[in-house]
């Protein structure tokens, strides 16, 4: 499988898709298909559904390519957002909603709870992640790092993360909230 290298011009490929060239979408599929399928399958946890979603994602990329604006973000980020959104919609729409009392969530002292989680092991080999995100993840406590990664990579909901970590739901919500604020500050 080709690497997501600078050699592949994602922007030009989207432009060619917008121009109606099937070969451009095929090149993109050859370049990113296995990675897109891997990302989607991890979230939906079902192979057949994952292929359905990659199919829908490719058709979406094709029909919406002309709306991509390179001034506002990377082409590769846009491509993955199309696929991840479809995958997340699929799992969230089928999910029983966990109602959280917002007040309880925010009044819980998440920092105090962190003490108990101090020695938690990393659930992901995130250190290999490219670019600035690895540096910024390093600044987070392991448990908060795991929350972010279980959410993004596994597509876990707050409730699923809470069960996986055996942590109170409100605490998990507060951890994620603060982690996002820290990541944005670190990466801006």
């Amino acid at each position: 499988m080709p690497s997501p290298s600078a050699d592949f011009d994602y922007e030009a490929t989207l432009a060619a898709c917008a121009g109606g060239r099937h070969s451009a979408l095929h090149a993109l599929y050859e370049q990113e298909g296995p990675r897109l399928l891997g990302v989607v399958q991890r979230i939906v946890r079902d192979r057949a559904l994952a292929e359905d979603i990659v199919h829908d994602a490719c058709v979406n990329i094709w029909t919406r390519a002309s709306t991509f604006d390179p001034a506002r973000g990377s082409a590769r980020g846009w491509i993955y957002s199309v696929a991840r959104n479809l995958a997340l919609n699929a799992v969230r729409d089928g999910q029983r909603e966990v109602v959280v009392d917002e007040d309880t969530a925010t009044t819980l002292d998440a920092r105090a709870s962190l003490e108990a989680w101090h020695d938690m092991a990393d659930a992901f080999a995130w250190q290999a992640s490219a670019g600035r995100i690895a540096h910024c993840l390093e600044q987070l406590e392991p448990v908060r790092r795991n929350c972010v990664l279980h959410a993004y990579v596994d597509g876990f909901s707050h409730g699923e993360i809470a069960r996986r970590l055996d942590a109170p739901l409100g605490t998990v919500k507060a951890w994620i909230k603060r982690s996002l604020a820290a990541l944005r500050e670190c990466m801006t």
Binding site: L37, G38, R72, G73, S81, A130, I133, V153
Partner: peptide
Amino acid sequence: VLAWEDRLLPLSDLAEPATP
């Protein structure tokens, strides 16, 4: 949203690729 997509994109590599 697009800024977050770009910030978090490198984490996509943590999912094992799968052959379609």
